[in-house]
């Protein structure tokens, strides 16, 4: 048993064991609060209903807005809603609370990277959300609102959503790391969430923004969290007058994930030196 403990194969097995244990523990922990999560079954469709009425009224005076038809814009909002259930993340809040309360010190003693642990927690949390939030709302949209929620290409849609899932985690985790400098990061968190949702296309399709804004948004990483997975799901990508093939966009998304991972590594390297905790 001890002889092979440092072999790469054993390290991988160990990481898989950690992943399974953390995912299961988080799943069970949150399953106790599944009714909290199930609020989405009400909130998602009601919020969506408002959008349906707004856009129906808007399109009653014309056929297209910014090149999008009514059907396309309604589908966009439907897809955004369900993708958000899959990629939702609270790593920023969790980490800043651990730092603020000093409980983070216990993680420095554990033989596991906190980032990896937090990622596994997210997997467990979203696994629960899959049947409590995603599937019921998906069926509601499909059967009640009659929205086409079948991805244009399942393979690319799954890859893009997975990359969006990882990118959302890394970005939020980096915000959590700022807790090493700021201790209480509530304001910064809110500011970031606001900026992220606005620039990721959660509020409106990014093509509705004025031209110069679209050009800025094209070079920001936020579009890769929601806008890109949504457009990949629908089967076409366009922003700032630039249309790109789906594999190319997904490749860019993968690039954004790698860059964000390097940013996380750098922030962690600088931030961890500042942490002090007593007792906790």
């Amino acid at each position: 048993m001890i002889v092979h403990k440092n072999k790469p194969k054993n390290i991988i097995y160990r990481q898989i064991d950690i992943l399974k244990a953390t995912v299961l523990a988080t799943y069970k922990e949150w399953a106790a609060y599944r009714s909290h999560m199930a609020i989405s079954i009400f909130v998602g469709p009601v919020t969506f209903l408002v959008q349906v009425f707004i856009w129906n009224a808007v399109y009653s005076t014309g056929n297209t807005v910014s090149g999008l038809t009514l059907n396309q814009i309604i589908t966009y909002y439907g897809v955004v809603t369900i993708i958000n259930y899959l990629t939702y993340d609270s790593a920023d809040w969790n980490l800043q609370m651990l730092i603020q309360t000093g409980k983070f010190i216990t993680f420095m003693l554990r033989p596991v990277s906190h980032c990896y642990y937090a990622f596994c927690q997210k997997l467990g949390h979203r696994l629960l959300a899959l049947w409590v939030e995603f599937i019921p709302v998906y069926l509601l949209f499909l059967l009640v609102f009659k929205i086409n929620l079948v991805p244009a290409d399942l393979f690319w849609a799954l890859i893009s959503i997975t990359l969006g899932f990882i990118l959302m985690f890394l970005m939020n985790y980096c915000i959590g790391i700022t807790g090493f400098w700021l201790t209480k990061t509530e304001g910064l968190r809110r500011a970031f969430i606001l900026l992220r949702d606005l620039c990721a296309g959660v509020l409106v399709p990014l093509t509705l923004f004025p031209g110069f804004m679209q050009k800025i948004l094209f070079f920001l990483p936020f579009q890769f969290i929601t806008y890109v997975p949504t457009r990949v799901f629908i089967g076409s990508y366009e922003l700032a007058g630039i249309s790109l093939p789906i594999p190319y966009v997904v490749g860019m998304q993968a690039g954004a994930v790698i860059v964000m991972f390097l940013v996380y590594k750098l922030l962690w390297f600088l931030g961890i030196k500042r942490f002090t905790g007593v007792g906790a």
């Binding site: 707004i54 009224a57 808007v58 399109y59 009653s60 005076t61 014309g62 807005v65 910014s66 606005l198 509020l203 409106v204 509705l208 923004f209 004025p210």
Partner: peptide, 15 residues
């Protein structure tokens, strides 16, 4: 309000 602005900025409106 931003959504409202974007709607009207795209030459659409609420009737």
């Amino acid at each position: 309000p931003l959504l409202t602005y974007l709607i009207y900025n795209n030459e659409a409106s609420l009737p």
